[in-house]
Computed example of a mutant assay.
Amino acid sequence: MKLTFLGVSSALSVGYLKFHSNMLLETDSGKHILIDCGGDVRHAMFELGYTPKQIDAVFISHLHADHVGGLEWLGFSKFFMENIQLPLYIAPELKERLWNNVLSGGMSTLEYKEATLETFFQLEALDDNMSFTLDNHVFKLIKVPHSYSNNHLLPSYGLLIYGKQHKVFITTDTRFALEELSSVYQEADIIFHDCETSEHLSNQHSHYNQLITLSKEIKQKIWLYDYNDCQLPDALADGFLGFVTRGQQFEF
């Protein structure tokens, strides 16, 4: 499998090529699954030569705009240009809110009928372990602590991917949560980790100053992404694999 970072920037980054931290995973058979679909994904895909026709499925981790803001464009593109319902992998607890709170305002009305989420997307079932299988590879959803609403933790998920040679953990957006994620850190061979780098701590993401406290064993597995517009620290000197750059590819 090959993982391409369409973007590596935080949600609030601004400027040319400062794309959201969405990824494209290509399976061994050539299928492409989009891992999150932020508001600038169409531009991020275009810059790297990808089109909607190449997308075979999409996984959504949570409902912030830098992860779902491009779904209307992608759903409409597949529906109107290809007459296809795009396979969608998402936690069951997010489906209703994705439609009611995010997509219905722009997508619910077609000329001759009232549309639903299923009009544009083929909702794929997860098994009892919150996993799905694509091209004989298992993708396991890992619940991560990201944001709260009125003291209630909102659902958000990373992905643990079982490749041929390596187990890869993509945190998506997560707070620093060593106790909750320690077992996944241990199981994974490679980790792509959410990493805030701004002076201001949002408390919504893992900050670099928190991540450097991880053990040497864990840090040497970690690539950092989803960082802010600022001078980046020396990740290699601090024991990490480095900061991911836009367009960088990994095979596993």
Rank of each mutant, 00 (worst) to 15 (best):
K221P: 00
F59H: 06
V8S: 07
E180V: 06
N209L: 07
Y89W: 04
Q210A: 00
Y162D: 10
F80Y: 15
L71R: 03
S9Q: 09
L117G: 01
E111C: 06
K78F: 03
L123V: 15
V244G: 04
K164Y: 13
N83T: 11
K219V: 10
S131Q: 13
N151I: 01
Q249I: 12
E124P: 05
G39K: 07
N150L: 09
A65L: 09
V184I: 12
G239V: 06
N100C: 07
L181G: 05
I190V: 14
T27Y: 11
I170D: 04
G7E: 02
F120T: 00
Y112G: 11
S202C: 08
S198K: 08
Q220V: 07
D189P: 05
K78E: 05
F79E: 07
A57R: 04
L153G: 06
T213G: 12
D128F: 08
E114P: 00
V68H: 01
F120I: 04
D40N: 13
A237S: 13
L159E: 09
M23Y: 12
S104P: 03
G15D: 02
E111G: 09
E118H: 10
E124T: 10
I60N: 02
L214M: 05
W223S: 08
T174A: 11
H146P: 02
V144S: 05
T109H: 14
D135H: 03
A91Y: 02
V168F: 05
A44R: 00
L94G: 01
F76I: 14
W99M: 03
T119H: 04
Y225W: 15
L71E: 02
I84M: 10
S61V: 05
G239S: 05
V244D: 06
K2N: 14
V102D: 03
K31G: 06
I35C: 04
K140S: 00
A115F: 08
D66F: 11
W223R: 10
T4K: 12
G242S: 07
F46M: 10
H67C: 06
F243T: 02
V14S: 13
D226F: 12
L17I: 12
P52Y: 02
